[in-house]
Write a protein that binds this DNA or RNA. Structure first.
Length: 424
DNA sequence: TGGGGAGTT
DNA sequence: AACTCCC
């Protein structure tokens, strides 16, 4: 059996742990740049604030009743780790799927014991971290997702729902479920499924896998089997290194300024270097992209990217920064209002299967070791003394492109100077 | 009007 | 490289 554990309204729940007065209140958390709503309490959902809604589109009279917070990823990331730690005490097989969701394998456990186990787990997560979670159990990931959905929506489950792939109850549920509610079926596929006469999850389950593979891809074929309870999406080993590393950000406001872009691209490249070294990887190419705001039809639109090969596989931030700067030179156009830029590290490899350049080793062993020590020291300083303690390359302290986050709460659990104060 | 990431074709 | 999907 597979369980999907999903934190309820995760970001909002994290904020409530440290600000209990938000309990029972309509609360929303905004995306980077305070752009749109990415997490909602039940109360704010009830007021009609939709997921992904731009903050400025919330009606003023609704907005007045709500607490809208900037996102505080340092806090959410740390709380997420705490939740995952508890889950790991209940089964050795945990796949962290996202910041607020984990798949657990209960293979080998007595099936009758699972609901009880999951209830105990849920209680412990709540007690140890303050975060409420829901659990869905079934024989495939896709059904576990749906079971989780039911655990959230139907109070009689008490937060833990199990779905037997062969039961009448499951059939009745799937028969009334729009196919777009199934994991992996979004708007595009749903529309195409409709033209094939498939409207509900049950119809998809009953369809011919081979037929769907022809019309779509192996992905849709797998979904059919998954809906039948056949587990065909393996639990991923999360220790697998990333295949690409992306860092991008929108500017706080549009900019035409080349210096802004140069600084942003350099900072992004340095951040990507940190991520790369964390997984002990090396990159062989870097992609740089810039673009305008797609929603501003009144301004000329421009979107361009370029791939810059790196001089041999490297994880040296200085090499990444240099290449990113060179890439920007190739795609920067004067007189354009830029909204966003970013970089992506590509062709990642590790030290073992690194390919040496045609000209032989670009760096001798000694130089390389010195560079690696420098980067390791840099990472350690930033880890122990907070991000941005040591930065490569100068950039202005206050940037046009710094993030807007006007209502960010303190990083209670990861910064000594932002600890919660308690009076007794 | 986020910022990542993945997979398939 | 484009498209689709995920959270």
């Amino acid at each position: 059996m597979i369980a999907l554990v999903d934190c309820n309204n995760f970001y909002v729940s994290c904020e409530r742990v440290f600000q209990p007065r938000l309990e029972g209140q309509p609360v929303g958390v905004l995306s980077n740049n305070d752009g749109c709503v990415v997490a909602r309490s039940q109360e704010i959902k009830d007021l009609g604030v939709a997921m992904g809604m731009p903050a400025h589109k919330i009606e003023p009279h609704v907005r007045k009743q709500c607490t809208l917070l900037s996102s505080n990823y340092a806090l959410y990331g740390d709380m997420s780790r705490r939740v995952t730690d508890v889950l790991g005490q209940h089964t050795p097989h945990v796949e962290v799927y996202s910041i607020d969701e984990s798949f657990l394998s209960f293979e080998g456990f007595a099936p009758e014991s699972l609901i009880g186990r999951c209830q105990a787990m849920r209680t412990q997560v709540r007690r140890d971290t303050g975060i409420p979670v829901s659990v869905g159990l079934s024989t495939s990931k896709t059904l576990a997702k749906l079971a989780n959905h039911r655990a959230k929506k139907e109070p009689h489950f008490g937060g833990v729902a199990i779905m037997d792939p062969g039961s009448d109850d499951t059939r009745a549920y799937l028969e009334q479920l729009p196919v777009s509610e199934v994991w992996g079926v979004a708007h595009r596929s749903a529309v195409r499924l409709h033209t094939l006469g498939i409207e509900t999850a049950w119809q998809l389950r009953e369809a011919s896998p081979k037929h769907l593979r022809k019309h779509f891809s192996v992905v849709m074929e797998r979904i059919v089997y998954e809906l039948r309870g056949v587990n065909c999406i393996e639990l991923d080993d999360m220790t697998e290194p990333k295949k690409q590393i992306m860092v991008s950000r929108s500017f706080g406001r549009l900019t035409q300024n080349k210096t802004d872009l140069q600084e942003a691209v350099r900072v992004h490249a340095a951040r990507a270097g940190e991520k790369l070294r964390k997984q002990s990887g090396l990159a062989q190419a870097i992609m740089v992209f810039v673009r305008t705001n797609r929603f501003r039809s009144d301004l000329p639109s421009y979107s361009k990217s370029v791939v810059v090969p790196l001089p041999g596989a490297t994880c040296d931030s200085r090499a990444l920064i240099r290449a990113a700067g060179a890439g920007l030179e190739q795609i920067f156009k004067q007189g354009i209002w830029y909204q966003k830029c970013g970089i992506m590290l590509m062709d990642l490899c590790n030290h073992e299967n690194e390919q040496l350049g045609l000209l032989g080793e670009a760096e001798n062993d000694e130089t390389r070791q010195r560079n690696e020590r420098l980067m390791a020291t840099l990472d350690q300083l930033n880890r122990e003394h907070g991000k941005g303690t040591v930065r490569l390359g100068m950039h202005r302290k206050v940037n046009a492109w710094e993030l807007r986050c006007e209502h960010r709460t303190p990083r209670y659990t990861t910064r000594w100077d932002e600890l919660k104060e308690v009076s007794l």
